[in-house]
Every structure is written in structure tokens, then in C-alpha cells.
């Protein structure tokens, strides 16, 4: 049994939100795959997204890039936490086949 007190997972959530505050300091260099794609000339195959909601981890409409990134990150953290929590609850609630 893993009964985790509310205090413990609230601390976890605060830690995750705190990490997003550091996100403006992240390296803007291309990642490993993008680097290889550039070097080997297939980066051009990439298609534009079909739509954009929060592209490039920048919340639209906010001119300060650091704040825009932090807010995008915080929205993502809360969204992921909520989605996975609900998925887990639904999975568990379903009666065994």
C-alpha cells in the first residue's frame, strides 16, 4: 500500500513548478536529433504543425520571453499532472476483466 499524504505530493508539484522557473535558462541549441538532421540534410523534411496552441513553450500574447516560457511550463505541469492523475484513476477504477 502506498498511501501518500497530500503534503508529499504537493511538495512534488511545487518542485515541478519550480523547475519551470529555471526553464528560461535552458540551452537553446538544437537537440541531438535536430543536430543530426541538420548535419545530414534532412531537417528540411519537417512539416509545420497543423495548428499552434503554445508553440516553442512560449505562451502567446506575452512579450517577455522568460515569463512567457515560465507560464507555458506551469500550464504544462498542471495539465500533465491532471491528465495523468485522471488516467491513473480511470485505469484503476475499471473493474478487472
Amino acid at each position: 500500500m502506498k498511501q501518500i499524504p497530500r503534503r508529499v505530493w504537493l511538495i512534488g508539484l511545487v518542485v515541478a513548478l519550480a523547475v519551470t522557473i529555471l526553464s528560461p535558462l535552458a540551452s537553446s541549441h538544437p537537440d541531438g536529433l535536430e543536430r543530426v538532421a541538420e548535419d545530414q540534410g534532412f531537417i528540411g523534411r519537417a512539416l509545420d504543425p497543423f495548428y499552434e496552441i503554445i508553440p516553442d513553450y512560449l505562451l502567446p500574447g506575452i512579450s517577455n520571453e522568460a515569463i512567457s516560457t515560465i507560464l507555458a511550463g506551469m500550464i504544462g505541469v498542471l495539465l500533465v499532472a491532471g491528465v495523468v492523475y485522471l488516467l491513473a484513476r480511470l485505469t484503476h477504477a475499471r473493474p478487472a476483466a
Binding site: 500500500m1 502506498k2 498511501q3 501518500i4 505530493w9 512534488g12 508539484l13 518542485v15 515541478a16 513548478l17 523547475v19 519551470t20 526553464s23 511550463g73 504544462g76 505541469v77 498542471l78 500533465v80 499532472a81 491532471g82 491528465v83 495523468v84 492523475y85 488516467l87 491513473a88 484513476r89 484503476h92
Partner: peptide
């Protein structure tokens, strides 16, 4: 296990961040 759902949510959120 019962009570693991919050841990899953927080772990995923931390990995996202």
C-alpha cells in the same frame, strides 16, 4: 496500488518540466 494515482501525476509533471 490504491493511492498511486497522485504519484503518477506528479512524476509525469516533473518529467515534463
Amino acid at each position: 496500488e490504491e493511492g498511486e494515482a497522485p504519484l503518477m501525476g506528479i512524476t509525469a509533471a516533473f518529467i515534463f518540466a
